[in-house]
Nucleic acid binder design. Structure first.
Length: 425
RNA sequence: GGAGAGAUGCCUGAGUGGCCGAAAGGAACAGUUUGCUAAACUGUCGUACGGGUAACUGUACCGAGGGUUCGAAUCCCUCUCUCUCCGCCA
């Protein structure tokens, strides 16, 4: 959520940014929020004056009672009682205004970074770099869903029976490959200085708001109504919320965390073409990296995280490209997002395998995630960043497709110590 | 799930209606001194929203939300959470 102070201080930049994300009536929405806040301030300072008077008078009553001047005390009591109605009214007005202001702010998306390209559709994303040869596979190459069936490593039919579409069983070498990838990703992250965490996979409403999944993506999360809990769509949510309501020391920064969790997405409405096999699931595994950074360093750290993810893809020998998402293709909460896409030769298309983002203060504002400056002794909001490192299903799909041979599927060298087999055949 | 106890600042913990935004101790930070793998002393040490260039100042916050009262950390109600014992259990 944007801060009202940002709207005041950088109105023009905010409005332009919102327009880059195609927010309707951006200028009017910003103006409306500022007006609401002006009104709020006025009423609040009015209320504070009344409260000050009441506090002073009440203190006098105390003094008078002590010195036994009962009658004067009674007179002042009446005075105070007269102001109570006014205070009540002002309090109610303040509450209503605060609520309206919140509602006006919470619907605004984050403002994109200056480097974010203009554009509305995925085609307008900017190609930043690419690695490896993205060639189409030779004649007779199979897409991963056929390979899965051929080697019997993932079972969609029984997943369908037991849970529903999008909840497959991984079997035999398919299951071991999952385990290998998770361990490989966690070990790599640890080497890069990330602290491993195993977070809860259900979260409460407050956490959903903290990282911005609520109210925006309400329908995308599985909701356990009876307990008021949501199943996490990504480990970003519990790990970032771990730092909710905290004031860190500058010397502790940056905080680097990594966690593996299953992720759950309802993906309501987006079922259809292009989602065969592993391309889109309701439950999938992902290793997520999260950093809490000083505002001065967050963009350097973002580059660092991006390079880290690219390094993983290179170790797995998967050809990829890096895109800087355009305004229209970015999420509500992000200020700058890089997508990593791996080329699937057999499907002849790019598959998004990772998304690395800087949220600046958009999440930390709601999270109340701050640090205290050593010099000024003031608190300030920190920047939050995260990225998939990596999400399994599409990595598995790409590995299967790109490494298929007549003899079977070749496991990349770096994974063999984890799988303890070299071929799926 | 049953019974009881509790929730105070970074931590421990005092505070049962006005003198409490809150004692004391610890931790941390700064300074002084003695000196050397530290000690002693002194000082600083919550957050948010307003006003002010600033010093400073007003208000709110003692788990959350309501209530009583001229006045609430302190009394009442509701909720949440924690702990202990019992039950159940991976």
């Amino acid at each position: 959520m944007l801060q009202i102070q940002q709207l005041r201080d950088e109105k023009e930049r905010i409005i332009l940014g919102l327009e880059k994300k195609f927010v309707l009536n951006a200028s009017e929405q910003v103006e409306k929020a500022i007006l609401l806040d002006n009104e709020r301030k006025e009423i609040q300072s009015n209320l504070n004056k009344f409260q000050e008077e009441v506090n002073k008078l009440s203190a006098e009553v105390g003094q008078l009672m002590k010195s036994g001047q009962k009658e004067q005390a009674e007179a002042i009591k009446l005075q105070v009682a007269g102001k109570k109605g006014e205070i009540k009214t002002l309090e109610e007005k303040t509450a209503v205004l605060e609520d309206s202001l919140f509602n006006a702010l919470v619907v605004l998306p984050n403002v994109p970074h200056v480097s974010v390209p203009n554009g509305r559709t995925p085609e307008e994303n900017e190609l930043v770099e690419s690695w490896g040869e993205s060639k189409n596979m030779p004649e007779g190459s199979l897409p991963h869903w056929d390979l899965i069936a051929k080697y019997d490593i993932i079972d969609f039919e029984n997943g369908n029976k037991v849970s529903g579409a999008g909840f497959p069983f991984y079997k035999g070498k398919g299951a071991k490959l999952q385990r290998a990838l998770i361990n490989f990703f966690l070990d790599e992250a640890e080497k890069a200085g990330y602290n491993e965490m195993q977070p809860p996979i259900v979260i409460n409403k407050e956490s959903g708001y903290g990282t911005g999944q609520l109210p925006d993506k309400d329908g995308q999360m599985y909701h356990i109504q009876e307990d008021g809990l949501y199943m996490i769509p990504t480990a970003e949510v519990p790990i970032t919320n771990y730092f909710r309501d905290t004031i860190l020391k500058e010397t502790e920064l940056p905080k680097k965390c990594v966690g593996y969790t299953p992720c759950f997405r309802r993906e309501a409405g987006s079922w259809g073409a292009h989602v065969r096999g592993l391309n889109r699931l309701h439950q999938f595994d992902k290793v997520e990296i999260v950093q809490i950074a000083h505002p001065d360093q967050s963009y350097l750290i973002l580059e660092d995280m991006r390079k880290y993810v690219q390094g993983l893809l290179e170790k797995l020998n998967l050809p990829y490209r890096v895109l800087r998402l355009c305004g229209g293709d970015m999420s509500q909460t992000s200020a700058l997002t890089y997508d990593m896409e791996v080329y699937s030769g057999a499907q002849a298309r790019w598959l998004e395998v990772s998304s690395v983002s800087n949220f600046e203060t958009f999440q930390s504002n709601r999270l109340k995630l701050r640090a205290k400056s050593e010099e000024t002794k003031k608190t300030f909001l920190l920047h939050t960043l995260n990225g998939s490192a990596l999400a399994l299903p599409r990595i598995v799909a790409a590995l299967l497709e790109n490494n298929q041979t007549p003899e079977g599927i070749r496991i990349p060298d770096v994974l063999v110590p984890y799988t303890r087999f070299e071929w799926i055949n």
